[in-house]
């Protein structure tokens, strides 16, 4: 195990023994470069890009158990165990990117903060959720709306919200939506994760039906970061508008940056729109209108 910098598998997104960056993203890759599937232990072994000399303790361990991967895995697991609050549940769920998963603990903490300080939600500064943008007419997109975005959401006069993550809303959100009379559609789906986890196209079709229904508009589509799942859904809407794929991808990448996923773009391209197109035609929803008669 000579030079770690030259290891072929620089999967520095893999569990990184509790460094701050680790919270941002878990691993995306489970194939080595030559395409063979790697066992989790192998990943751990191959993906230890420890900075030279920064952690001599680990080096010694690695060398001494070089021939015994199980022993090394055990030792690594032990080390991971030292930071249970950071590495506990997430490190075992290898198919979830940090971006895909709503951090419920963080939500709770935020909620408590707002409760404790008794902050008036109506008086908050206008703060749109991250990645907020109109899609077309009365359809909007964004990341998971935080409590401080409530006063902004109110200005949109939403009739419904389509939520693409499986996690349950925190109580404060539920209260807010009820108070505003906002109808909730929850269609939890996992993101497109190589190699096994995919966005189910049928669910997307159902989701687009909800979004296009004028009775549900104005509607906000959101997932956790407003990048991947929302991006795929908006991509499908753009296909209904018959946009060129290049432009659809360009829009997808703008919102997904810097975490564009080729699989998402492939999903948008390969999605079979026959069903949703038939539905939209039958209900007189096509072509999609840029502005309604309601005026300004």
């Amino acid at each position: 195990m000579a030079d770690y910098d030259d290891e072929p598998f620089q999967m520095d997104e893999e569990v990184d023994l509790g460094s701050p960056e680790r919270e941002l993203s878990l691993t995306e890759e489970y194939f080595s470069r030559d395409g063979t599937y790697m066992e989790e232990n192998d990943i751990r072994l191959a993906s230890k890009p420890e900075p030279k000399g920064a952690n001599s303790g680990l080096y010694k361990v690695s060398e001494s158990v070089n021939d015994n991967p199980e022993e090394l895995a055990r030792l690594l697991a032990e080390r991971l165990g030292k930071n249970p609050e950071k590495n506990g549940e997430e490190s075992t769920e290898y198919d979830e990117d940090a971006d895909d998963k709503l951090d419920i603990q963080k939500q709770k903490a935020l909620e408590n903060e707002f409760r404790e300080k008794n902050i008036d939600l109506r008086a908050q500064e206008v703060t749109p959720p991250e990645n907020f943008a109109p899609v077309i007419n009365n359809i909007y997109r964004s990341s998971f709306p935080q409590i401080h975005s409530f006063s902004f959401l109110r200005t949109l006069k939403l009739k419904s919200i389509l939520c693409l993550i499986p996690e349950e809303y925190p109580q404060m959100h539920k209260d807010f939506f009820e108070e505003e009379g906002i109808k909730l559609f929850q269609m939890g789906m996992s993101g497109n994760k190589e190699p096994f986890v995919k966005i189910p196209p049928d669910l997307v079709t159902e989701a687009v039906k909800v979004v296009l229904d004028p009775r549900n508009q104005p509607i906000l589509i959101h997932c956790n970061r407003g990048k991947h799942r929302t991006g795929c859904l908006v991509g499908v809407i753009r296909r209904l508008q018959r946009w060129l794929l290049t432009i659809i991808f360009d829009e997808y990448r703008k919102f997904a940056a810097p975490k564009e996923r080729p699989m998402d773009q492939q999903f948008i391209e390969l999605y079979n729109e026959t069903e949703i197109e038939r539905y939209a035609h039958e209900h007189g929803l096509l072509p999609l209108q840029w502005d309604d008669e309601a005026g300004l």
Binding site: A133, P134, V135, N137, W243, L244, I247, E251, W290, D291
Partner: peptide, 15 residues
């Protein structure tokens, strides 16, 4: 028919 929006097109607000 394929529809091609101009480069960097995006809605800002209604209309």
């Amino acid at each position: 028919l394929r529809i091609i929006p101009p480069l960097n097109f995006c809605p800002v607000e209604k209309q």
